[in-house]
Amino acid sequence: MQLQAGLTNRVYRLEAERGTFFLRLPGAETQERVDRAVEAGNIEVAAALDLALPPVFCRQDTGILITRAVEVIDGRPPDFPTELGTLIGRLHGSNTRFSGSLDLPAIVQSYRQLLSSKPDFAAELAALDGLLDTLIAQEELLSSQLLVPSHCDLSPGNCLSTPDGVRLIDWEFSAMADPAWDLAYAILEHGFSQDQEDAFLEAYRFGRPSCDCPSRRHLDFMKAGCDAVSALWAFEQVMRGRDRNAFMPFARERRERALTRLRPE
């Protein structure tokens, strides 16, 4: 049994008589924010599209999940942005429907209420007040966007490069969402250069030819939203007693990047 990398869940690679598997044991901090019934249903939909690893065992009450393992290529192939863009285009353009929806203003408000109740985080949160107000005020704009089935957590650890192409794991936060969320989050979390971002978006358009790609302005707005949520998430980890030296610099870096991208008027 070999422990895999992960920030919130414990994931193990298991060698057994019937094959090799991934075992996911969810972290306690995910219990309040993850609907396991929604996750299980969305995994089934994504697996039918050949985008997710089909579950072998799934316990909705505990979040324990077992899938067959895949061979993961070390490092990223040069065409990774193109592969990922095509994959996300297929997901968003699949005309399928996920359970649940990602509501950015509601997420921001939830984190804000939680953290503002802790005096130690008052100063950290104050720097974000203007940006959070701007994000919450955009509820009408965001709610008017066409929602598509989305992964919602396209961090590097959840995008596996395999001999058969990219496969996505960890569908905990999957939902119907503004397509700009997956695009912005992937660009930020993978640290794409401008050339890589352009290749990623071009492949996305190719994978979803019947629909428009979000505008550059809308994508930049969502990048700020993604960074703000990432900062709030990291502040919450510190609040819950996780490694301050690891999560506080991450939170502050994401906060400052969001602020430089979207200054409140």
Rank of each mutant, 00 (worst) to 15 (best):
R217Q: 05
L53A: 08
V38I: 12
R68A: 12
T82K: 10
E236D: 05
A180I: 05
A234T: 04
P54S: 07
L49I: 02
A137M: 07
R13W: 03
T62W: 14
G225N: 05
I169S: 07
L142C: 09
L53F: 11
A69W: 06
I107N: 15
H92I: 00
I64C: 09
F57W: 10
P149Q: 13
V70H: 14
Y185K: 00
R36N: 08
R167C: 09
T8C: 02
P119Y: 08
R240K: 13
A175Y: 07
D79A: 14
A186Y: 01
R208D: 12
L49Q: 04
D61Q: 13
R255A: 04
M176A: 11
V70D: 10
P54T: 02
G207K: 05
A69T: 04
G63C: 12
L65Q: 12
L135P: 06
R112L: 01
Q4L: 14
A258L: 01
A52H: 01
V238G: 03
L135S: 06
A16H: 13
V45G: 12
Q196R: 06
R59E: 15
G27L: 15
L53T: 09
R261G: 07
A177M: 12
P119M: 06
P214K: 00
A126T: 06
R68I: 00
L49K: 03
T8E: 13
A106T: 08
P119D: 10
S150H: 07
R217Y: 11
L219H: 03
L147I: 13
T8L: 09
M176T: 06
A52E: 06
Q109D: 15
